[in-house]
Structure formats: C-alpha cells, structure tokens
C-alpha cells in the first residue's frame, strides 16, 4: 500500500487503467471545431479566389495564389462605404442607449426597490419572450404611420426597445451582487445616488458591461431582419443587406460577397477583443471581504 509513484513513471509501469475519456472528448471537440470553422474558412477562401475558380468547383482547394481583386472591388465601391456608415449610425447609438437605459433600470431594481418594482421588473423582462416575427406587422404599420419607414431611426428605435429587457436583466443581476454596505458607505461619505452608480456600482460592474456591449454590438451589427423590413432605398442599407445586394442579377458574386462578409465581421471582432480584457479584470476583483 505504501508504493511511491514517481512522476512520469520512470520505474515499473503503473497499474493505472487506461482512461479513454480525455481522448474521446478531444476528438469530439476537434470535430466540433472543424464544423464551426468550416463556413468561416469557406468565406475566407471565396474572398481570395476568382469567380472563375469558384465556378469550377475549386472553392475548397487550398489556395495556391491570393487574389486581392474582390477586396479591391469592395473597397472602391461607394455603396459599400455607405453600408458601413449606415450600420455604424445604427449600431453605436442603439448599443449606447439600450445599455444606458439598462444600467438605470438595473440600478433602481437592484438598489432602490419600491412598491411594485418586482412586478414591473417582470413586465420589462417579459419583453424578451416576444419573437420579432410576432411584432413585425404591427410595428410596420406603426412606423408607417409615423413616417419612419426607410429611415435609420426605425432600426435604431427597434434595437433600443429590443435591447432594454436583456440589458435591464443583466445589469440588475450584477448590481445585486454589489454589497449594499458599499452603497451606504458611499452615501455616508457624501455621495449622491448618481455618484454611487457612477463611482461605485458601475466600475464594479465592468465585466457585465463588457458582456453587454459585446452582445448588443454584435447582435445589432449583424441584424438582417429589421433593416430588411424597414429599409428600402440603397443609400440607407446596412452591411448585412449590402452583402445580399451584391449578388448579380444572373450570377452569384461569391468572391465579392465573401470579401464583404469578412470586412463586415471585423468591427464585432474588434469590439470583442477590446472588451475581452475587462472580463478577466472583473473576475479578479475582490468584493467586500476577500
């Protein structure tokens, strides 16, 4: 019973039975990784190949030379530049406003509850459970009456409204973990409720904010449905509509679409990489007691 096992088993072979699970898990994860990455690789390949190559069915062949023509086409196309500007004009204000409202709602629900606030919170959260398809037609009629159809405002408004429930839920739950004693200590030090929020609660909630910014930005940037419904003219189109719009009347411009898809995913990638460090920073921060 007193056998001493040397590390890396330099002595007699150990009697430990072979454990197949790490290998099985590794294989499953590898297959999943390939499945998830395949479309991205396909898009990447299509963006650096000529339409002729793709038409001959050589999309999945490893590229022997890189064709930059698709990117050149995209970057010199004035419509594409417009698509990017439009998408930014929708995504940035919608993200900022929905998160700001979520922060204010979340703080009140977490730290300043009032009679009936629990019910009100549930009402706001229930907004998450309506699929877009259900509210599509009434919204179209409403926006039509307000003359908002074919404006960027329509998409901004809808994304703010759709973002409030998730932003409120996430911020409320995060603020709830900020100890009340911190708020009370700050108030006794002379802080107003606004200062408690901006100087104590928000800095402690950077991880939640980082998650929210990434989620909202990606979701709004990548949205296809709402611009498709509410935007009609080419000069107001977003990037996602633009990708579809690039296909020719009689042929499919795979290469150009692939190049625009790659460029269109860059902003979300940048947002993710930028906020990623706050995820880690937030997790290592101490609470009231260590």
């Amino acid at each position: 019973m007193a056998d001493i096992q040397l590390p890396h088993g330099t002595g007699a072979p150990s009697a430990k039975p072979f454990n197949p699970w790490p290998v099985v898990i590794f294989i499953i994860l590898s297959i999943l990784a390939v499945l998830f990455l395949a479309p991205t690789v396909g898009v990447l390949f299509s963006s650096i190949k000529t339409t002729k190559e793709i038409a001959f069915g050589r999309l999945w062949d490893f590229p022997t030379s890189v064709y930059w023509g698709n990117f050149a086409d995209i970057l010199s196309n004035p419509s594409v530049q417009g698509y990017f500007v439009n998408t930014l004009l929708i995504t940035v204000p919608a993200t900022v406003i929905s998160i700001t409202l979520g922060i204010l709602n979340g703080y009140v629900f977490a730290k300043l509850p009032f009679r009936g606030s629990g019910i009100l919170f549930l009402v706001i959260i229930s907004g998450m459970f309506f699929p877009p398809q259900v509210i599509l037609i009434p919204l179209f009629r409403l926006f039509n009456g307000l003359h908002l159809i074919d404006t960027l405002w329509s998409v901004i408004f809808i994304h703010i409204a759709m973002g409030i429930p998730i932003c409120t839920l996430l911020m409320r739950n995060f603020f709830a973990t900020v100890p009340n004693a911190l708020r009370e200590a700050a108030i006794l030090e002379g802080a107003s409720e606004w200062q408690v929020l901006t100087k104590i609660a928000l800095p402690l909630s950077l991880p939640a904010l980082a998650v929210l910014v990434t989620l909202q930005f990606t979701w709004i940037w990548n949205d296809f449905l709402w611009p498709l419904i509410f935007i009609q003219s080419d000069e107001k189109r977003t990037v996602m509509l633009g990708i579809v719009n690039l296909k020719g009347q009689y042929s499919v411009a795979w290469g150009v679409q692939g190049a625009l898809s790659l460029l269109a995913s860059l902003p979300t990638l940048i947002v993710f990489l930028f906020f990623q460090k706050y995820f880690i920073k937030g997790m290592t921060m101490g609470a009231v007691k260590g």
Partner: peptide
C-alpha cells in the same frame, strides 16, 4: 439626508471600495 448629518460609520464588512 445621511450625508448632511456629518457622521462617519465603520461597517462590520469594512465596506471598502474594492476597485
């Protein structure tokens, strides 16, 4: 309001601002 009373309070949990 608490801030107008010119009091200071030391809490059981210390309530130091962790950030």
């Amino acid at each position: 309001a608490p801030s107008k009373r010119q009091l200071a309070m030391v809490f059981q949990s210390y309530a130091l601002f962790p950030h």
